[in-house]
Design a protein around this nucleic acid. Structure first.
Lengths: 198, 198
DNA sequence: TGTACATCAGTGAACGCGCGTTCACTGATGTAC
DNA sequence: TGTACATCAGTGAACGCGCGTTCACTGATGTAC
């Protein structure tokens, strides 16, 4: 640390972002109940009254956390896609990314898909971006003339449910290794996707 | 109300069960944050110190609520099955029951499959009972020699994810009618279950 | 059947805790001229 | 470049709130004899 780092500045400079990142840390460490304005402020190194200048209460902070959460989520979905051209490989990859996000950010997963959020944030651009990744990956499997939403909902429901059940410990403790385990088993349901439903 | 009903009795008689039912009501009305020992006691008509004689703190109450929640859940799963013999009809029915439970008891759904519960209740008999309903319905679709868990996890993941995404409002507000909507679309993924994966 | 007594299941007051929020304040920053 | 001034962003004290928990207590219930 340099001298300028330790010198206490009255103006933080980037407090809003720092509070969001602190909030995400707290969320993953202690769950949704561990996420409070006072703890976020403490972790960001400011007084507990400071967040009021940046967020409209705890609800406002949660909305900001959800937006950042969707950005992180999208990064996980896209991470393994680059270079993959085979549609089936891409489908598998996006599901792996979904599960990986859930394993490493269970708190964020619950926040971004928690009850009521989509009602609070009607124009969810970050969420739409993530959905479009899924849409692109599913597109090759959509039969001509069929509503693409059908396959999207099928894939989304399957991997969403699997990830949450996995996190809930429903497939056993300690969780089995991904490669040999239930993930591969559930993925076989997608092996003939696109040939169904007509 | 009769005189004996209004007469204040020192011994409630069935306070433990009354507290669980009050807790479920609070959970569905106000979400998990609205579930507190003091509110349960108030709703059950006793002092706020009374629950301490029946539960090991709020965590103990939640465990009891989860057990009762699994019983209610099983009732929903079984509700439409009686009389149905066609395996595909039975599969569809259990999924409809799953969704109906989620729509009417979203709070309970989150509690019984919430993070950490299966760690708190290692011998979850009520949960096992519910799982066995699913197992029985899936059995006709299991190819000879295949681990039945594969299809069970596929079906479970699909309907679990669909129900939660539905509750999260991801398929639009107001939710579309079940019959014409996404439910039918996602169910088509199960139309050829049992013929896949080998 | 009656009595003595132990146990059970509530009461109500009290405690400390962390929380969100408000408030007057003040130091830092940015801008007009 | 320098000065005056408005605005911004954080401080620290204070407030009331609902919470879980503890405690001595007491009325109700159950049991031994």
């Amino acid at each position: 640390m340099t001298k300028t780092d330790t010198k206490k500045k009255h103006h933080h400079g980037n407090l809003k972002e720092a509070l969001v990142l602190a909030g995400i840390e707290l969320l993953e460490e202690s769950g949704i109940d561990g996420l409070t304005l006072r703890k976020c402020a403490a972790r960001a190194g400011v007084s507990h009254a400071a967040p009021a200048h940046h967020f409209d209460g705890l609800a406002g902070l949660k909305i900001a956390i959800a937006q950042e959460g969707f950005r992180i989520f999208s990064r996980y979905l896209e991470d393994g896609l680059t270079g993959l051209v085979d549609p089936q490989d891409r489908l598998r990859s996006i599901c792996q990314g979904y599960l990986a996000f859930g394993l490493q950010h269970p708190g964020l997963l619950n926040v971004i898909f928690g009850t009521g959020l989509s009602a609070l944030v009607p124009d969810n651009q970050e969420g739409s971006y993530a959905y479009n990744i899924l849409r692109g990956v599913c597109a090759p499997f959509v039969p001509e003339g069929q509503n693409p939403q059908i396959i999207e909902i099928q894939v989304w429901s399957l991997i969403h449910g699997f990830t949450l059940l996995y996190l809930a410990g429903e497939f056993g403790y300690p969780p089995p290794a991904i490669a040999d385990g239930p993930f591969e088993q559930v993925m076989t349901l997608l092996d003939r996707i696109g040939t169904l439903g007509n």
